[in-house]
Design a protein around this nucleic acid. Sequence first.
DNA 1: AATGAATGAGCCTTCATTCAT
DNA 2: AATGAATGAAGGCTCATTCAT
Lengths: 223, 223, 223, 223
Amino acid sequence: MKRKIYHKSTFEKTSRERQIKVYWAAISVFSQKGYEAASVQDIAQKAGISVGSLYSYFSSKEDLFKAIAEMGYAVLEQIVTEWNPQKEDSFRSAMTTLFRMTLEYSRKYPDLSKLYLLLTTDSLNPFSEQLSKEMEISFRSAYAHLLENAREKGELRSDIDLEMAGYFIDNAAVMLQFSQTSKYYQNRLRQYLGLSEDEEMPDDRIVSALVNYICDGLTHEEK
Amino acid sequence: MKRKIYHKSTFEKTSRERQIKVYWAAISVFSQKGYEAASVQDIAQKAGISVGSLYSYFSSKEDLFKAIAEMGYAVLEQIVTEWNPQKEDSFRSAMTTLFRMTLEYSRKYPDLSKLYLLLTTDSLNPFSEQLSKEMEISFRSAYAHLLENAREKGELRSDIDLEMAGYFIDNAAVMLQFSQTSKYYQNRLRQYLGLSEDEEMPDDRIVSALVNYICDGLTHEEK
Amino acid sequence: MKRKIYHKSTFEKTSRERQIKVYWAAISVFSQKGYEAASVQDIAQKAGISVGSLYSYFSSKEDLFKAIAEMGYAVLEQIVTEWNPQKEDSFRSAMTTLFRMTLEYSRKYPDLSKLYLLLTTDSLNPFSEQLSKEMEISFRSAYAHLLENAREKGELRSDIDLEMAGYFIDNAAVMLQFSQTSKYYQNRLRQYLGLSEDEEMPDDRIVSALVNYICDGLTHEEK
Amino acid sequence: MKRKIYHKSTFEKTSRERQIKVYWAAISVFSQKGYEAASVQDIAQKAGISVGSLYSYFSSKEDLFKAIAEMGYAVLEQIVTEWNPQKEDSFRSAMTTLFRMTLEYSRKYPDLSKLYLLLTTDSLNPFSEQLSKEMEISFRSAYAHLLENAREKGELRSDIDLEMAGYFIDNAAVMLQFSQTSKYYQNRLRQYLGLSEDEEMPDDRIVSALVNYICDGLTHEEK
DNA sequence: AATGAATGAGCCTTCATTCAT
DNA sequence: AATGAATGAAGGCTCATTCAT
């Protein structure tokens, strides 16, 4: 997975500390306001540096955004790596881990999580199409391996469309992430669960329900 | 479901034709460019009216957007109404209809579909939070009725968390819509299915796989 | 001589008064500071209008400059037309008129005159080459006619290179204009004439000397 | 001819090589882009030194430009010295040499030549007025000597205004230089001569025509 | 003495909003 | 009621100049 480089060489020469401040500020502002509404001034200010410096690191707002986007993908890949379901784990437990990690990740990195939403929901940034093509996130192959393994172990139904199954699992994970990241999807989940705005999310209930549906479906098995 | 009114009273006095042109132009521009990048000039021009007129109908860009948002919800509600699964239909066939309609809707109204994406993704518009609270879309209750009915008919497992089930179904529908609406999610689906960019979407395969997973899950029923 | 149009259609709709204020301000600022150093803000302010208005008339600083340039050429052409030496006039008197008019013009329109200098001396504006090609000022053919006529009337030496002669006359006129327009060339003339900075220009002496040199040369005719 | 010093004392301590690189770079960049558009960064880079160093040699962009300007004048003076028409040479041959040298110089040092254009054309640089006063180029006295000598030898008409004559000769030389240096004046010469853009300049024709006009004028000597 | 990263004022341009016609 | 020209604040970006290393 080759990542493009969107910063100028100057950026690599700055202190790690400064780099991090810049990334942090950019992620924070972009994710809160979106690409268009975010202002370079804001980002510089939040990072505690001058606009001139920012432009000596990145040659345009666009490039800064793309650099941040790359970071978002990088974190995602890290998660897949960390997930790494073992062969001997049951499919069910792998799913449970996946959803638990998804919840954990979206809470640990709310800004990056929001950024992912921004990236995947076009029209907020003018290069979404370009970016979407460059994204070739490792989840797909992780799912593929997991499913093949499960089939070999006889855990899966024999009539399963494996490719669609991967897509289906991913959907569930993505929507779970959205429900932590976007106010709208969070409200929606609360409404479905009949929760008020200040009640805590019943993580266990959510995860186990998801796992159940994915593994067993909603209806009785056809006889 | 009370809808707030975001237009000035003047708007109601104009011809229906003019109203529609305004709505259509606003939806088109907002959905293509996003809230920030859309310009009031563009919208007025596309609607074939003057900026002054537009401002005599809506007191700000914000209000115009909100009015459009309301319209988006209205269309959604219309769909639920149209869906209206009959008591005697099986749960499985109700699901099939739901997903077929979702596909059909996202293709028939790509702009509105994109608008929904904008509305639900914070930071794509500055009032997402406010809007998300006002949205109380009828799908939830439609799902609830459907599920209760299915349970009564003995179609559902007995251990199902009904509330989460509604949420789960909705997720599947939303992601299906996204896969038609956002370049990113479309590419992603193609990648999962191993399709090239110019191959047609295999609707039947997608719908039936989704229905299968939702109804039967991925694994063998536990004995 | 087709002139390109560099303004937006909006400009034509404004009051003549406003148009003139804009032209005047632009000529004044551009000629005093040069293209790069002139600021759009300055021009708008000097014209007593808002920057936004200026941009509704011209789509860029570049276009505004080009529009002004066109005006400069237009005035030049007007001068040639006005000059219009009669067939029965002697070559000598036509030259006298030419230089008198040149002096008069450079004093009446000092800004336009300076602008011409700017236009013809590259590297001050990034489009000089383009502009220089579009300029096809009528002086050349006016000189050609004048010289042919003079030759037919037997006023000219027979060995004269007519084409170079036109160029030679034009040079004299251009340098005369420069000597009114550029501080440097003005100082230079004063130094040659031994004048202090506050002494008035001896127009008659200058014109008659020029005419003499051009008509009779500096040396005795070779026998 | 006292020349002002515009560099800091540090500049004198650097290697001659470094000094020359700086001058060369500055001349090149200033002459190609003009004062405003030239950037200090560009110059430093082209000279192969750091911006910091440049500022340790010259205290501002302005001073750097003025230093370069001084150099331009210095070269001009060198040319006058080199010209140095001998007493025994005829006026005609001195003129021929002058124009030949002018052509040669403008081609050998196109950048310096362009710089001269910049210096003499106000508003291309913000200090033209100041500079023009400091310029007191030796050509004037060279012309004066030449003309006096020619008059003594009886080569000149007796009614000649000697001061204006010097100015007249200089004009011809300056315009000849411009025609090599500025795209506009080059095109203009080509148009007068009916040359296409890729035809070579007919140096001999140009020089001899100029000499003829200057010496003999355009018309028959009055009887 | 040399370097080049850092600064921030200032420039060109856009666009939501107002208001005279 | 409708128009669209006018406004000016704000945004992205550049570059002369400084200063820590």
